[in-house]
Design a protein around this nucleic acid. Structure first.
Lengths: 197, 197, 197, 197
DNA sequence: AGTTAATCGAGACGGTACGTCTTGTCTTGAC
DNA sequence: GTCAAGACAAGACGTACCGTCTCGATTAACT
């Protein structure tokens, strides 16, 4: 049995990695099958062949498990294309992103965000584990656009990033209008036009 | 026994407006006091002095009640300022909106949207009752900006509206960065710059 | 529409016999189909095409309706055979009775008696409408047995009747031992032996 | 906290004797106070300070709880007097029984039997836990009467027992005639006369 | 090798709220 | 005044999960 390496602890039975892995695996399966709102701690425990106690020992709520499971199954960082034009790279990436968000992945993300509205810890984990790494990557590309002289140097990147990605999340969550690559590109065009010299 | 077939005739005891009003009133009170996630049908029934069956007869889930209660307590339309410049009006309005979303109203909206992720009906009611009227109003103002020659005539208004408001909802829901009037204005400046001639 | 003739009442819409009949008919159907314990006022109303109000106007509880319906569908009196020997007639009759109680009729009777334990009115109606007429008939036959010199004249008929029929009801209600014609006869033989000279 | 000793079970938290006892105690109290028909699972749970789920985990319906509670509060066996004459003992016992059945105990028994008409499990529990032990005891005494030569040896004891006790239950349940020690004795006299040589 | 202590599975527990069911009452307009 | 229709307050039902709490059995590091 594999054991998590924890040099600070000295006494007692070590925590089982098997339990932890089967919990996250079961959570991912259930997220795919029934969605987040139908996810229950008892269901995870049953599927993972684990006691509820074991889950509660390590996670506070189902949101934390779900996010950890989701992050484990997701690329830790977005991969941007690397062409001669940074803004071309950005536009390419938002189109890919919109396509991904049209799948079950998009659905799970909306539910994680929804859960986050009830639970600050859950939201925090999602921000730190998913949103911020992607924002950093996007800001790096935008910085390159500045360096390349494609956009103005005085643009506030935090505003610009949200201007590019905010509308995508907006449509993802509300569904009031179609979220597809074409929209993502049109929005990026509009916003980046405003950021050009 | 012969029954005169008269489909237009209203049979049975008429629905009580008192019940309906007290349900919506109680719901609004509880939304303020405990928030949406702590809202329960039983709690509403108890507060309203109404039987649970009466609630279930007219609403499917707590989201529907909450939205109806929320809409009842909210202005049906945003009021835009009316100055010589349509884009000045827009900028003024998004600053006001951001300020409003920093209050409890913002919190309730995030929870309604969160609820909508689990329940399509709820989301639909929110879109139709809240989002679309405001989008229409905003699009009318943007159309005026076109008519006034302040922005290009070939801009897709659906994209433009989401570019202006999407980032506000984005920060409202994720809280990864501060949502305040200054951000709303900066975003509007950026986007509208891209829409100008 | 048939109307119950009631010369004392002068005002208002006359009571409908159709409603009454269809209520009792529906009750009998439902007693056969689902049994007494699954019988509901709402079910009767729906089946009879009648408003609940109409039922409540004329009956206090489902026991009263069920008993009235049951009595309407049952012979008002037992028919005893008429041979040269009164005790032979009795023995013949209890065998018939035991056979009848092995059918659905027996089941309904147990449920009516059960209902009677919760509701004194219901029990009273059952006693007066079902039990007492049958006891009277049985006592008349037993009196004939006395007159014929088949049993002692000093026997208390109320005790004797219950000694003959009580054990039948006992087994009908408890089911701890088989209730069949053979038992009914064996019991009658035993008891009547004790009543002979 | 007291725990039910069950050496066969090895897994999970042991069942709490405290819960079980307080449930049965509360049930007995409520049976005395409001009667069986007014007894509710929720009422028992509230009185016992126990969760409804705990009750449903161990009992199927209120009849099962009521019977278990009733049996716990009742002598497991009738005590017969032990004189030189077995039939004198029987007569003495039926008089005592009739007296007991004139109290609240009689009322509860009728309601348990009534419940048994709707629910086979409940009736089964009552038969096995209450009726059969008493029938066995009575049959043992009657066997002694045979051994003493007080009644015929060829009498079917199952018939004889029901002939002695059936009429008591009959009057208890129907109340069409008075159930008192005098009747119980008169019936026993009649039946036993038929069983004598 | 034995002791110590945290882990594990299992599952019972007190709770909360669910959504449904049935009761008996009430409020209409039609007859 | 009675009827059908059906809304209403009331409240119990049986279920689903929650998060906590015993248990006995493991599992290694530390004696």
């Amino acid at each position: 049995m594999n054991i998590i390496n924890n040099p600070g602890r000295q006494l007692g039975r070590p925590r089982s990695t098997d339990s932890r892995d089967s919990i996250l695996k079961a959570t991912n399966q259930l997220l795919e099958e029934v969605g987040f709102s139908q996810l229950t701690i008892e269901g995870i425990a049953a599927r993972a062949g684990v006691a509820k106690t074991t889950i509660y020992r390590w996670w506070n709520n189902k949101g934390s498990i779900a996010i950890e499971a989701f992050l484990k199954s997701t690329e830790p960082r977005i991969s941007f294309p690397q062409s001669d034009s940074a803004i071309a790279d950005i536009k390419e990436q938002v189109k890919t992103l919109a396509a991904v968000y049209q799948t079950q992945t998009g659905k799970i993300i909306t539910e994680l965000i929804a859960m986050g509205q009830e639970n600050a810890d859950t939201l925090h984990l999602f921000i730190e584990g998913y949103v911020k790494p992607r924002r950093s990557a996007a800001k790096a590309v935008l910085q390159r656009a500045i360096d390349l002289g494609e956009i103005r140097a005085d643009v506030d990147l935090d505003v610009l990033v949200d201007a590019i990605y905010g509308p995508i999340f907006h449509r993802l969550l509300l569904g009031h209008e179609r979220l597809d690559p074409a929209f993502a590109e049109a929005n990026a065009n509009l916003v980046l036009a405003g950021a050009m010299k």
